[in-house]
């Protein structure tokens, strides 16, 4: 186990930033941390990297107990954190920025540069090492910050929104790099608002919103709520009122003659079909479909609002 936390909570004065965090992350896993703005993802990651001491609960990262100040340095030598803001020194060159962190980590600079050069090439930053970072674009800064996170070869890597602000191609490069790091057997924790990205990279996810909403394998999360894909004659949009009149009023998307209806359980399927037929729909086919992560996620976050 790379990360084990139990009942972790962080308060800032009276305000509870996040509470009830209980989950485990296995070594070599890519773990997603999802939640709306202000849900406490960054706070969680800060606790797990020893930047903030938990107010309550306990946990270990790389076998090192959280909240014991004396172990902070030992913990930080083994984890890497990509912060929400790249936080680079603008007057310094890319090379100087990276050298600084190599020295803070007291790694062998020659060996570290060998590896680092590979990342710089992959990210298209090679050849610009000696320019001041102040002249870098947003994407270049983000990529440089990711390289900086890796200078000491951390076992567990925390990435707080690594692709935010990147163009599609750069985001792709970053995602490929993340996948490669995972393939090297490193543990990754990924905070992201990009659900497609989470679906592609993560094996398990935790959804937080002030408190832990769920922890599950991605496949399970998508299976949990089912969806029906219905092909009808004519415009599917005309059938939405019929669905809304059902007692469980399922959410639905339509696109041309295709209708995707979200179900809470398999038992709702016959009622949906009956309601559509009663509304005069001419149905060509009905198929079960996996629900996209987005739906499962929005539902989890919504339930929380009502609770």
């Amino acid at each position: 186990m790379s990360i084990v936390v139990e009942g972790l909570e962080k308060r800032f004065g009276e305000r509870v930033a996040v509470t009830g965090l209980t989950f485990e992350v296995k070594a070599g896993e890519v773990f997603g941390l999802l939640g709306p703005n202000g849900a406490g993802k960054t706070t969680t990651v800060r606790m797990l990297t020893g930047l903030l001491a938990p107010t309550r609960g306990k946990g270990t990262v790389c076998g090192i107990e959280l909240g014991r100040a004396s172990d902070g340095t030992a913990l930080r030598k083994r984890v890497g954190l990509l912060t929400e803001q790249p936080g680079l020194y603008e007057r310094l060159s890319a090379r100087e920025n990276l050298t600084f962190f190599m020295r803070l980590h007291e790694v062998d600079e020659k060996a570290a540069w060998k590896r680092t050069q590979g990342y710089l090439e992959r990210f298209g930053l090679a050849g610009r090492e000696d320019e001041p970072v102040g002249g870098f674009s947003k994407g270049m800064r983000q990529k440089l910050a990711i390289v900086r996170t890796l200078v000491h070869e951390p076992e567990v890597i925390f990435l707080d929104e690594p692709t935010s602000g990147l163009d599609p191609q750069s985001a792709r490069t970053v995602r490929d790099a993340v996948a490669e790091l995972a393939a090297e057997g490193r543990t990754l924790v990924l905070c992201s608002h990009n659900l497609a990205e989470v679906e592609r990279l993560c094996t398990r996810v935790a959804v937080v919103k002030s408190h832990l909403r769920t922890v599950a394998a991605l496949t399970k999360l998508r299976r949990e709520g089912l969806a029906l894909e219905v092909h009808v004659e004519g415009e599917a949009a005309a059938l939405l009122p019929a669905l809304a009149s059902l007692p469980f009023a399922p959410a639905a998307h339509h696109e041309g003659n295709k209708l995707k209806v979200m179900l809470a359980s398999q038992a709702q399927a016959p009622d949906v079909v009956a309601a559509l037929v009663a509304a005069g729909a001419r149905i060509h086919s009905v198929a079960r479909a996996a629900r996209p992560l987005e739906e499962a996620y929005l539902e989890l976050v919504r339930e929380e609002d009502e609770a």
Binding site: T49, L81, P86, G87, Y89, E90, L104, H105
Partner: peptide, 14 residues
């Protein structure tokens, strides 16, 4: 101001 403190404090430096 430049938001470099958090990455800095997430390194082993005390």
């Amino acid at each position: 101001e430049k938001r470099t403190l958090e990455p800095l404090l997430s390194s082993p430096v005390t």
